[in-house]
C-alpha cells in the first residue's frame, strides 16, 4: 500500500464503517423479516428523512437552538466555577463534594421538577442541557489549573508575581486545552439534556417529534429523528474539535495540525 492510499483509507474508514453497519442492519431486517414497527430498514429511514425533511429540519433547529443556549451557559458558568475551584483550595474543598453529588443525580429526574417550575417550552430544555453539560467543563478547567508545575509557580513567585498574575499568565493558558477537550464531551451531553427534556415533557424539538411519532406507531419517523440527533451530535463535536485545534495548537505540539 502506498502512502497516499494509506492516507485515503484513513479518511475513508469512518464512512466505510458506517456503511458496513447500515448494510448489516438492512440485511438483518430482510433476512429475519423484521416488521417495520419494531425496526425499520435504514433505506426506509432515509426515505422518510428525505420525504419529511422540512418537518425534521424545523424540529432539529428547535433542539439545536435550546442545546446551543444551554451549552453556552454551561461554558460561561463552568469556566468561572472551574477557575474558582482550581485556584482556591478553599473553594475546592467546599464545593467539590457538592459537585460530585450533583453530578450523580440523574438529570432525567429533575426535568419533571423544572416542568412544575417553568411549564413546558424551551426553558426546561435549555436548563437541562445546561446542568448536564457544565460538570465536565468545571472538572477539566480546575484540573488544568491545579496541575501547574511547581517549578513554574516558583519561577513566577521568585519574580514577585501576584496570585492573580500566576492565574492569568500561567493558569488560564494552561487550562485552555483542558477546557477545549471538555467542550467536545459537554456538547454531546448538552444534546442529551435537551432531548431528554423534550421527551419527558415538551411540545417542541426533535425529542417531542420522536415521542409523538412513536405514539402513532410511526417507527420510521422515530428512527429518522434518532438519526438526525446523531448527525447533529457529530457535527457539533466536529465543530468543537476544530475550535480546539485552532485555539490550542501548542498542546498538539504541531503534530496533528499539518
Amino acid at each position: 500500500m502506498t502512502e497516499t492510499q494509506r492516507r485515503l483509507l484513513l479518511v475513508a474508514m469512518p464512512w466505510l464503517a458506517m456503511a458496513g453497519l447500515l448494510i448489516l442492519w438492512e440485511l438483518a431486517c430482510i433476512v429475519f423479516d423484521v416488521p417495520e414497527i419494531l425496526a425499520p430498514r435504514p433505506t426506509r429511514i432515509f426515505e422518510v428523512m428525505v420525504l419529511r425533511w422540512d418537518i425534521l429540519l424545523k424540529y432539529c433547529l428547535e433542539t439545536l437552538w435550546t442545546t446551543a443556549i444551554g451549552f453556552v451557559l454551561a461554558i460561561g458558568f463552568g469556566v468561572l466555577l472551574g477557575l474558582a475551584v482550581g485556584a482556591s483550595p478553599f473553594v475546592y474543598s467546599g464545593l467539590y463534594p457538592l459537585l460530585i453529588a450533583f453530578n450523580a443525580v440523574p438529570k432525567v429526574a429533575i426535568v419533571p421538577i423544572l416542568m412544575i417550575w417553568l411549564g413546558v417550552g424551551a426553558l426546561p430544555a435549555i436548563i437541562t442541557a445546561f446542568v448536564i453539560s457544565f460538570f465536565p467543563i468545571v472538572v477539566n478547567v480546575a484540573t488544568g489549573l491545579a496541575t501547574i508545575e511547581p517549578e513554574m509557580r516558583d519561577v513566577m513567585r521568585s519574580l514577585g508575581a501576584s496570585q492573580w498574575e500566576i492565574l492569568t499568565k500561567v493558569g488560564v493558558p494552561r487550562a485552555m486545552p483542558y477546557l477545549f477537550a471538555s467542550l467536545k464531551v459537554a456538547v454531546t451531553l448538552a444534546f442529551i439534556g435537551s432531548v431528554i427534556s423534550e421527551t419527558v415533557g415538551g411540545n417542541r424539538g426533535i425529542g417531542f417529534l420522536m415521542l409523538s411519532a412513536g405514539a402513532r406507531n410511526d417507527s420510521a419517523t422515530t428512527f429518522a429523528g434518532l438519526f438526525a440527533i446523531a448527525i447533529m451530535g457529530v457535527l457539533m463535536y466536529a465543530a468543537c474539535a476544530l475550535v480546539e485545534r485552532r485555539m490550542t495548537r501548542w498542546a498538539f505540539r504541531g503534530e496533528i495540525v499539518g
Partner: peptide
C-alpha cells in the same frame, strides 16, 4: 531573582521570545 531548573519550565503556548519576555511583564 532569576531561576533556572533542571526542567526548562518554558510555557509551550508562548514563543521562545515571549517566554523570555515574561519576567519583564512581571517584574517592576
Amino acid at each position: 531573582v532569576g531561576m533556572a531548573f533542571q526542567a526548562p519550565t518554558l510555557m509551550p503556548w508562548r514563543t521562545t521570545r515571549d517566554n523570555i519576555l515574561l519576567p519583564l511583564e512581571v517584574v517592576e
